[in-house]
Design a protein around this nucleic acid. Structure first.
Lengths: 360, 360
DNA sequence: CTGAAAGCGCTAACAT
DNA sequence: ATGTTAGCGCTTTCAG
């Protein structure tokens, strides 16, 4: 297996031990006082020259800039922030096992927030002993917070809002006067349900736990509605949102009584896991059994058969959250905004239908 | 005194265990002074009671805690940090098109850093107009920085180190006395090369740009070495590290003269893109042509045929960086540490070999 | 146009 | 054990 030689006995000793002398003691960080003194002006003038908050004589400014450059002065963010009473940063909290979905949303957010001149702090709530404390702490270090899913309890959201920190809720019902962004799961789920109904499946099994997340609840409801008119039977088997759970649960479902001819999974990871289980059981996915996912993560389109799924605009969701948050932080808007982004049904061959956008 | 419930109706009320007086429009954020006054003590005592930095009489502490609760006091991170001269945060910079690889590393880092009591700031350098400025800015907001790839120029790394901010370099040659963490690309690449050589491929084509990244350079070198003893011919075609480029470049390569019977791609995304191109060309991957990737991202194992690749411990890389950085920040260690983590060759069927760890 | 000085909120001596 | 008082580094009146 992995007979890969780690590395030689040689512990990276290599390294340039540098000249040891210079790298060591940096006694005094350069402050605005140092610059002022060296330039023969007051600190206020330095501040003004650097941020252009007030007119400064050209000569003075030139001198200051030169000194700044010579001394390598970098204004302390801490000092600035304390004085300005703002962090120039936004935070984003995301839950549990962070799969591709959360990662995409976070990255999308970072890109947009960065463009808006705000740094972004991320905080997962995985193994955190106290996720509540972690979220509360984060709230104290940012000018605005994006909360993904049900990570943070409503009470805490209220508390954070009361502290004056704007909150944007993603994929979760609104709380207080927080903004919210969601994807139209219901419509897409209904479309998926109808699609399956049209193709005359006899027994559809939903893999997922509606009470574990609002998103999943909507998907389940939509599927239910979409199948309402057909003669299809619809059942539910609870399942966590990870691949391993998908495989395990699907394995049980396929081995049990009333074997369904379609597995509608709450997300792509479950579906990909289910595909493994189906193949194990000797079934040909897309022929003997239909399997669908949700999200359209990268692996969904590379799986064979291609996974029929519902595409969520993950990066956009994160990016849009940054914009919505920005309006609140900059007080451009003070009333809550609630938006619902559309999701798109992507039919590939895992559900046996005529593939569309699939390459096989 | 400051009870002026002038604001419009129905603020979330519920909230804290407060006496309800200050719930509405709080013009004045609760500071340590407010607590001290309300508790009839000095601010130092409040500080001591809250952080346990010195003994405080039980009665006093109790009173303070009660007041803190009533007023909903939360120490300002800004004030604390400025006084302590530390941010209690680490930063991580990652480059260009952030695919699954970077996301995994970042998430792994977040989890470990959080566990070490440090928040994490992320900074991509995608569309940033000025990535250098972005990185420099980040450096000013953290106690330590992780730099992924060649995002940040050496000179800037030196500058940041000189500011007294420890830096851990990931997948990149060390600079100054920064720590570095890398994956043993060379050994794994050699193993892959040998594997291919053993299977008697006639023409191997490497898809990737060795001069674009140190990692890619090592992979190319390793493949070269691994194939040295066989009669296999090895060529190189430059390619960016994304899927679309993979498809495009592979398309050209497969249509051109000297069609290779094996494509060794610099990462999984290129490989997945190449698979698309191969199938378009009517080739059966794993039979007519071998295709291999690098990283072992999620899609690699769900692709059909399963993608032969080299698994990088992505999350571990990020997590370990947090630990290495922590030693520097806490000054537990002052000499640079350079580590090389092992990578693992994962043979699946995309290279035509007997699958291992593949489900088909 | 520029300087002195008063904060921003908190920690940590230094005195009691 | 606890209060007083300096900072931490910067922004911003308030006076020239």
């Amino acid at each position: 297996m992995e007979a890969l030689p780690t590395n030689e006995g040689d512990p990276g000793s290599t390294s340039s031990s540098t000249s040891g002398a210079e790298a060591a003691a940096e006694p005094h960080t350069v402050t605005i006082y140092d610059v002022a003194r060296a330039a023969g002006v007051g600190i206020a003038t330095v501040s003004r020259a650097l941020r252009g908050s007030a007119p400064v004589a050209d000569a003075t400014r030139a001198k200051i800039l030169r000194v700044v450059d010579e001394l390598g002065f970098r204004p302390s963010h801490l000092g600035t922030s304390l004085a300005e009473k703002r962090h120039a940063a936004a935070g984003i909290v995301f839950p549990d096992l962070s799969g591709p979905y959360y990662a995409e949303v976070v990255m999308g957010h970072e890109e947009a927030a960065s463009r808006l001149g705000r740094s972004v702090l991320i905080q997962g709530t995985n193994g955190r002993t106290d996720p509540i404390a972690a979220a509360r702490d984060l709230a104290g270090r940012v000018d605005g917070l994006v909360v993904l899913g049900r990570t943070v309890p409503d009470a805490l959201v209220e508390e954070i809002l009361a502290q004056g920190v704007p909150v944007v809720l993603l994929a979760r019902p609104s709380v207080g006067n927080a903004d919210s962004l969601r994807v139209d799961n219901l419509t897409a789920a209904r479309a998926l349900g109808e699609h399956l109904g049209t193709h005359h499946f006899a027994q559809v099994r939903f893999l997922g736990s509606p009470d574990s997340s609002h998103d999943v609840a909507e998907r389940w409801a939509g599927i239910f509605q979409g199948l309402a008119r057909s003669a299809t039977r619809l059942d539910l088997t609870p399942c966590n949102l990870d691949e391993e759970s998908g495989t395990r649960v699907a394995r049980a479902v396929l081995a049990g009584p009333d074997r369904p001819d379609a597995l509608v999974c709450a997300n792509d990871e479950i579906a990909l896991g289910a595909i493994v289980a189906a193949e194990e059981a000797g079934l040909t996915v897309g022929v003997d059994i239909a399997i669908t996912g949700w999200d359209d993560i990268m692996a969904a389109r590379h799986a064979r058969p291609g996974l029929t799924t519902v595409r969520q605009p993950m990066r956009l969701l994160g990016a849009h959250a940054a914009e919505v948050l920005d309006e609140r932080i900059s007080r451009t808007r003070t009333t809550p905004r609630h938006e619902i982004l559309p999701a798109e049904l992507v039919v590939r061959s895992s559900c046996g239908s005529h593939p569309q956008g699939d390459r096989r």
